[in-house]
Simulated scan of single mutants.
Amino acid sequence: MCRCLSVDDSANAVAELRASLPRLDDAAGWAGLVQTADADMLAPALRLALARKGLDDAMPAQVRAQLHRRYTMNALLNERIREDALHVTALCERLGIAPVVLKGGAYLFEAPPEMLGGRSMRDLDFLLPADQVDTVVDAMLDQGYMVKDEADDDTTYTHPALQRPGGVVAVELHHRVGQQRSLLSADMAWRDIRTLQTEPRLRVLSPTHRVWHNIFHSQVQDQGHSTGLIWLRQLADLVDICRRHGESIDWAALDQMMTDAGMDGVMRARLLQAERLLGLPWPLRAPPGPAARLRLHRASLLLKAPRTMAVTRMWAALMAPFKLHRMDLLYHCGTGHPVKLAKARLRHIRQVARKYRGNLLGRLWQRRQYDV
């Protein structure tokens, strides 16, 4: 799967991929590859990647038609999601507010038309100034939007998801860049916002901050670094950002941000995954180092042990409410005080237990495919 998605389109790499693909008559092998893609919402990206590499003829006709349908349907869906994004942006502009579209929402406006269906979307995320979120929510409710889900254990960085009648995905309004309080403040992000040539005008994080947000989201917020879970869809997003905006990414500044936050090892481990698994050229001056290589080896071993991976995903879901930066966000306990952190976690355990009561195991089961 990683070889298929790799951005290394050299003749040698494509030849090696062709040799490693299942045979045309190997229905089970192709079914497994498509199933792997589906597990990470990457079937449309798989179709796009194989076509780009000129490997349509390596697929059985039935699989090629199946992936083409997935891609076409996703492209049509993304057109609808673009309309939703522009609707929210226009509504905000009428209020004199300029929202910032986060994560995959930017892809919908940066990708060329022939690649629009290559990214699967589950929701739309916007960043707003904290003191303007309620104003936008009230306006959206007046426009017929409805709260899709009840609030999670906290609303300290995002409002409960909203969706309008006829809309295809939920909209989440954030006033922080991820579940963190001080690593990348909203003020810092706002100072380096970029504007896209759309009408109405959409705004996105700077390329440097988009790389930071992607790595923080997958490796810290979704615990990829601590558990060894790779989160391939987010890794593909990281590679896409680096390919599109490589010259605009200030790697020295990003390296300093990560070092100041104690996340330089996290960044190097993730970039090594991007290099080894998806062919991204190494972007930093310093090499990855043995710790990053050890992390990659651990993640590779986990991929070969599906049962262990299932248990790891469940553990990540169980621990999600008690993550370090989330506790600091909720209780301002800091990230370097073990006693304060332990007290915050005990306090939060009581709150979660009161909220879900007898349904605590059911809530955990709902989050077993944890990949927020």
Rank of each mutant, 00 (worst) to 15 (best):
S6E: 10
A13D: 09
V14E: 06
V14F: 08
E16A: 15
L24A: 14
G29F: 12
G29K: 09
W30V: 07
D38Q: 15
A45T: 09
R47G: 03
L48E: 15
A51C: 12
D56R: 10
M59Q: 15
P60I: 13
A61C: 09
Q66M: 14
Q66L: 13
R80L: 11
E83Y: 08
D84E: 15
L86P: 01
L86V: 10
V100R: 06
V101L: 05
L102R: 10
A111G: 00
P112R: 11
M115L: 13
M121N: 10
L127N: 05
L127M: 11
P129T: 04
D134V: 07
G144F: 02
T156G: 06
Y157E: 01
H159T: 07
A161N: 02
G166A: 10
E172N: 02
E172G: 01
H175Q: 09
H175T: 03
R176W: 00
L183Q: 06
L184M: 12
R194A: 07
T195H: 07
S206I: 09
V220M: 08
Q223T: 06
Q223A: 15
G224H: 08
G228L: 12
L229A: 02
I230W: 00
I241Y: 06
G246P: 05
E247L: 09
I249T: 03
A261M: 02
G262V: 07
D264E: 13
M267E: 08
R268I: 07
A269T: 11
E275R: 12
P281V: 05
R298E: 08
S300M: 13
L301M: 12
L302N: 06
L303P: 00
A310D: 03
M319R: 15
L324H: 07
M327R: 04
G336M: 02
A342N: 00
A342E: 02
R347H: 08
N359R: 15
Q369L: 12
V372G: 00
